[in-house]
Design a protein around this nucleic acid. Sequence first.
RNA 1: GGCCCCGUAGCUCAGCGGAUAGAGCACGUGCCUUCUAAGCUCGUGGUCGCAGGUUCGAUUCCUGCCGGGGUCGCCA
Length: 607
Amino acid sequence: MVVRWQVLPLRPMSLDPLQSVLASAVQAAFTHHFSKELDVKLIGFQQTRPEFEGDVTINVFPFLKLSGKGPEQTAQAIGEHLVANVPVVVRFNVVKGFLNLVIADTYWLEFLGNGESDHLSFPSTGKKVMVEYSSPNTNKPLHLGHLRNNFLGHSVSRILQTAGNEVVRVQVINDRGIHICKSMVAWQKFGNGETPESSGTKGDKLVGKYYVEFDREMKRQIEGSITSGRSKEEAEKEVPILLEAQAMLLKWEANDPEVRALWEKMNGWVYEGFNSTYTRMGVEFDKLYYESQTYVLGKNDVLEGLKKGVFYEKDGAVWVDNTPEGLDEKVLLRRDGTSVYMTQDIGTAIKRFEEYPGLSKLIYTVGNEQDYHFKVLFLILKKLGFSWADELFHLSYGMVDLPTGKMKSREGTVVDADELMEEVVNEARASGEQLSKLDEFSEEEKTALFEMIGLAALKYYLLKVDPKKRMLFDPAASIDLQGHTGPFIQYTYARIRSLLRKAGTMGTWSHEYMVTWPLLPEERNIIKLLHQFPGVLAESAARLDPSSIANHAYEVVKAYNTFYQSIPVMKEEDVSKRAFRIILSAAVATNTKKAMWCLGIEVPERM
RNA sequence: GGCCCCGUAGCUCAGCGGAUAGAGCACGUGCCUUCUAAGCUCGUGGUCGCAGGUUCGAUUCCUGCCGGGGUCGCCA
């Protein structure tokens, strides 16, 4: 397995046990035939292509310099040695420089036999990791971009947890600042005392409405003052409503009781709204930080840095010079002594490591438009001499584009998170009702099922793509329930569960199976895929990338469906074959449930 | 302009040093007296942005160019 970059080191445990056996055998074979030491790093394993016989393929091209023989000869020699000395290697064939190995059925069966308990549980790493995600502003509702952020952060937390880490999930709620003051001013001016209760509007939506209202009024005022002869610059600087918002921010900082009360009230509305959105999304947090409490942090750290000569003073402001590292200079404390965004981030990071002394990693799930910010932040903390500065990681994900272009909140082209979830669930309902397979379901059961399916569609759609990459959100594809989708995986799971229920009542459950027949290719493919799971999970954890798990889960169920379509399970008359296929099916179900759990997606018993 | 990221089938994405580059959608085809057809089968479809370089071997690594995006505030 090749991991180009990794955040958490891979543990040897997670390496494929078959590969480690083969690797040392290949080394032994090489020494035996060519009297030279072969570096393990040269041994690359890959899946044998379906057009050739074999399970595992070793490419011998890298060995040729050492062996001094041609590719066929080298491969032949190693192949013969493996068959003679490694019990699980039963046959081999050589195609060009590729040594295709056939692994014994007994190996796959043994893996399947104790695999369920073994390969799905990872030993503890003893490490504690903090994952920050979500971190919204409180002046407007959550949108599509937040969904990618939340699903990603939540999934990464679960993947890290599954891989044996203790995970602390946190977010910083940006509850103070000019943005919320804008909503507050607009509400005071135009709200007429409107509340979520009085208007039947969700709290975050209501506050967002006044944020938009503010913007509208501001534009009106600017235009008005331009018509009455002011220059554009003048008009923009002196627009009365903005001055009011700025004045309110100052009052807030001065702890003005009235302003604080309004702020508490409106933020309270927002939290109520957010909570219902988070609940529906199915994401959780262990600890919430509020910017109103953290924004004062960092100042002393910066001043200390100044004393130590890490920073310098210019024009009354405190600066850091990152030009030696190829970056720029950056202000950390304004001339008036107040903080900038970077200052609080410095302080918050320090505080977190104080609160969680054993923390071995701090991961920030934040969009890639802040790549530069985090580069600078991490560098500053390093310059301040914190040993943990190397353990900071920016999980930088790409933006979500719409077919119509970029989302712009001011232009009303944002996709609202609540609306999107509603839509996707409605679509699941529409398709589900049409299939009329759910006659035995009560209304409540149906509602729960459609909720599960709709959210699976949305989550899987957003998680199957490499997080680093910008992605296009196609509304039609996101509610698709067929093909490479979450619901397709759920469907396969439900199918298997149905099968297993039947198996239970028919009393054919038995782990005491004897296999005296060769595995069918369809069966073999499934086991091989299940066998890869630990490696996929380890890679996913190392790279903080749910997409590899998402794609692997899809491959597994696809292989299962192919099997299911053409090979009888319950209808198989041979008792031991039947038992084996039931166990195989159960293993797929267990694996699927686990993989989907890592993605934050639930799976239904029936659908 | 400096720095960073991305260009793979009509569309959305996998693959990231190795064999004739894979999925899904879309399009065409066949399969429900059989364990859930939200499924399966077969087919159509690609100068892996372009040009060099490194290598036995490059979609994958390096350089340049073209195209798209992001970012460079005493904003957050």
